[in-house]
Design a protein around this nucleic acid. Sequence first.
DNA 1: CTGAAAGCGCTTACAG
DNA 2: CTGAAAGCGCTTACAG
Lengths: 350, 350
Amino acid sequence: MKKRTSIHDIAKHLNVSSATVSFVLNGKAEENRIRQDLVDRILAYVKEVGYRPNLIAKSLRTGKSKLIGMLVEGISDPFFSSIARIVEEEAYKLGYKLFYASTDNDKDKAIALIRAFRERQVDGYIIAPPPGIEDEIEALKEENAPVILFDRYLEDVQTTNVVIDNFKGALNAVSHLIDNGYGNIAMVTLDSDQSQMIDRHQGYLKALKSMKQKQVLLKVEYSLTEEKNVEVIRDFLSANPTIDAVFFATNYLAVAGLKAIKSLKLSIPKNLAVVSFDDETLFEMYSPTITAVAQPISKISHAIIKELIQRLSSVDGLKKNETIVLEPELNVRDSSKANIKSKERKTEVA
Amino acid sequence: MKKRTSIHDIAKHLNVSSATVSFVLNGKAEENRIRQDLVDRILAYVKEVGYRPNLIAKSLRTGKSKLIGMLVEGISDPFFSSIARIVEEEAYKLGYKLFYASTDNDKDKAIALIRAFRERQVDGYIIAPPPGIEDEIEALKEENAPVILFDRYLEDVQTTNVVIDNFKGALNAVSHLIDNGYGNIAMVTLDSDQSQMIDRHQGYLKALKSMKQKQVLLKVEYSLTEEKNVEVIRDFLSANPTIDAVFFATNYLAVAGLKAIKSLKLSIPKNLAVVSFDDETLFEMYSPTITAVAQPISKISHAIIKELIQRLSSVDGLKKNETIVLEPELNVRDSSKANIKSKERKTEVA
DNA sequence: CTGAAAGCGCTTACAG
DNA sequence: CTGAAAGCGCTTACAG
């Protein structure tokens, strides 16, 4: 095993002190008035032996790791993976490395991961929090660690949040269905207390109010497999034959829903219109194309990194908490097209 | 800023030495014959103050980080993100944390990331290597760091690789098209030297041999945007009106291809049959459903982690290199259905 | 202008 | 059975 060169080895070889080498390596040669020829000799030798600093030692000494920990719900969800990639890239430009992991919305897993980050002395946290981790976040705040929550926030703890207006996104989506003549609109959502899910549900309810429809709601248990989701949604659709449109609260529920609809041999939008929250490639490619509420991925990512960096570079962690609310956008496609038949049905129902 | 408790603080408070605390914390109380009541007192106090070890310090001392670095091509590609999640989970169970990042197949980015991992003293590496990083991998090997390459391998460096039989996957896919009566089959691939791409191309050529067709090949430049890919593929299809089937070498090329085919208003498989390498949800959902060569994601993931763990736990890094070759599977769907029209066309062409 | 020394928070031979 | 001490590889006041 080749032993790696340390600052000490370099210093010894060049007959200088390790402090001198450290200053040169960190660009502090000038302020410590180290002779230019020495600087050159050190730099040359460092290059020659291919010296790479031990960042573990550096972290231990400085208390900074230049690491950011990011917790998403699931890295294979296109919404999260897209944000992770942009944040990763921006963080990288600013000299930080991003460390991400998936919580599956599991409280215990999330807590374990936060602790793992903490034990590695990450400088800041970006978290899509599952419910129940309030105390852990509070503990982070007590250590003055910069924490940004995104996608959802926690009611009981003051933090800086980057979220979208889920209420409005849902309201617009469902209003769009109403405008296009659908009159019996169901919602398929997660059985979850997460803030974004509550807000989407509220938006749905608000839209229904305008036409005095009562809600037709399916709450799917969180940890079901996709097959199970398809089954549950299929049963729900079969049990509610009068609904003429469905609003899905997340993209993967919509994907399961599309499979269910297909297996029931229902035609979209003739028998059933569809709108989903969270846009993705599949929705552009599907036949028919699926109307979806798109989250402004790039704006979200940039807001996250901006807020975090501000707090990382302020001397004692910007105390002020902010909540950034971004606007979602409705991408209207064929799955929610106005159609005569649904209008008729609406009249029948009403 | 609340100062975190250290082993030293605990030792002082309980009037014992920090060594004792360290032994207790690491489950070495027994072998150091520490009194049970002391053990209990230490554990109780540790719990009371919510002590969390500083893993940075531990790493520095032990030279182990319990960290694995993983480099994928792009974390938003379902193939890579699925593997990353499984490996993450397995590693987690074994006490390792996974640290992953995207290279975009960029040599320089990959080298920078490997160095970042190295500077953080990761214990092992899992890499889908872009061409050109041979020297960096060689350097890792010289340090006796366990390295597993996956998805592709590098010709000029001896490593442990987990790959699939790309040649056979492609051969089967194209043979399937031939069996179903298609006689003028194009391939759309990446302009890349990567081993898996070369093997897929060879498989295509081999299949063509059986019917003496000359290749009709489009090599798409690697870093094009999706829009550009769609355009290039559309032009290619327009310029080659006699082809009756296309074999796409990757899932994202196929997605671009499907968009191109749609814009040309060609019907699948009537005007053009389609088969893609790398299966994904979209292909099950698309109309028509798309035939694809599926990689055994779970087997790949488990092979990677198994090989890595073996090398991590062997005293001086298992020297033997192995190449694990797994079998892909062809998921036959509607996009490659036999149809009369194409048979006729074949006869015309032949 | 440059060097010797302390210390970040751990672990582990070594003494007793 | 338990403690004192060295050392992992850095950085940074402090001396001179």
